[in-house]
Write a protein that binds this DNA or RNA. Structure first.
Lengths: 212, 212
DNA sequence: ACCTGAACACCGTTCAAGT
DNA sequence: ACCTGAACACCGTTCAAGT
């Protein structure tokens, strides 16, 4: 049939023997390698299977199709980043706005640059997948955490915290995506941290800093 | 040979007869249609050729390969947006910072949303192409225009205007990309304009507004 | 329970042949 | 000068057959 199918997520089969756990892990590893070395256009079932040391048939036992594999890889990465954002937000409850901002933006950049090559490779994967409610669901968790943090700031009352949190998330993710997306130069992380911090903090104060 | 080739740009042949001008136009049209209706994963030579009413061979007369076609489509779109940014920046020389900001951010969003479906379809195309010095070259024009505008602001002196202009460009492009990327809801453009304006203006003032 | 690999439809690209 | 479409290597996906 045509390619015009949905994008199914996750392993279609849950490993019950330890042998297959190793297989799934090998597939992930192989996929990441192909992705980083050759880019998303070369992430083919053949190549991944070869790298992983399994046959194509095996790959299809765990992933509904190549998009399913892409989604699984992307999800893994996003979960790691979002988990860190959620954690840091919880930890900053009650801190002054500037401290919140710095902690949040620094943590976000740290998480995204821990494996910079993988992050870069995955930007393309993310956009290749249409729909992508997965990403929206995950970033919703992040937006919620940011909003909940903002409402506990002792020095400022943020209006419409839902919208504001969404903008902050988009600003961080968007700028980092554009800046890290540049394959060439090595990226000045110190400067990036500084500017994103001011972007977010400036935005928050510019909205009308209702002193509390 | 392998797919591991460079991404060549532009038509390999310049149309000299009016017949072929029409052919190139038809190919572009067909490609945009496929892209918008089915997404970047379905942008195949077969489909584009069929839509355009030409044979695959003809397509290859004007584009070195499928990536070349993608680049050409993307470039067309980016040029339109960047041209508008460059023009508005020139027009705002000498205006106060807040007026500059509003003009710039509004114009950017206008340009990106004029053909929202096409814009969305092209985000994926952009990331599919590795390297992409094209995009960097084009956005450099935009960054330069923003910097040149900023240095003429009568009310504020911006430090390190090069870096700042790059951040502003990335912030606008990044946020718009993330927000418009969400396929679901219709996007509240009015709110988007408002928040991006404050994001950029807040950033600029937060950097330390050296009153002039 | 898990793995293999041949089989088939489809895509990218080329090129000899046409007008 | 421009266009066609069969040909070939390769990719996604399936499934009968193996352990």
């Amino acid at each position: 049939m045509s390619l015009q199918n949905e994008v199914p997520a996750k392993p279609r089969k849950i490993p019950v023997q330890s042998r297959s756990e190793a297989t799934v892990e090998a597939i992930f590893e192989g996929a990441i390698q192909v992705l980083v070395e050759s880019g998303p256009r070369y992430l083919t079932t053949t190549r991944v299977a070869e790298r992983a040391g399994v046959s194509v048939g095996t790959l299809y036992q765990y992933f509904a199709n190549i998009d399913g594999l892409m989604v699984a890889i992307l999800e893994r990465h996003l979960r790691k980043v979002i988990d860190r954002v959620v954690a840091i937000c919880a930890k900053q409850h009650g801190q002054p706005l500037s401290a919140m901002t710095q902690a949040l933006t620094d943590e976000f950049i740290d998480a995204k640059t821990e494996r910079l090559d993988v992050t870069r490779a995955l930007y393309a994967v993310a956009y290749d997948l249409k729909g992508l409610e997965l990403i929206e669901q995950l970033s919703e968790r992040s937006v919620d955490a940011i909003r909940d943090m903002l409402t506990t700031a002792p020095d400022v009352a943020v209006d419409a915290p839902d919208q504001v949190a969404a903008v902050i998330h988009a600003a961080m993710a968007g700028v980092v995506q554009i800046v890290l997306g540049k394959a060439g130069k090595p990226t000045d992380l110190h400067a990036l941290r500084y500017h994103i911090r001011h972007l977010v903090l400036g935005y928050l104060t510019s909205l009308g800093p209702s002193a509390r």
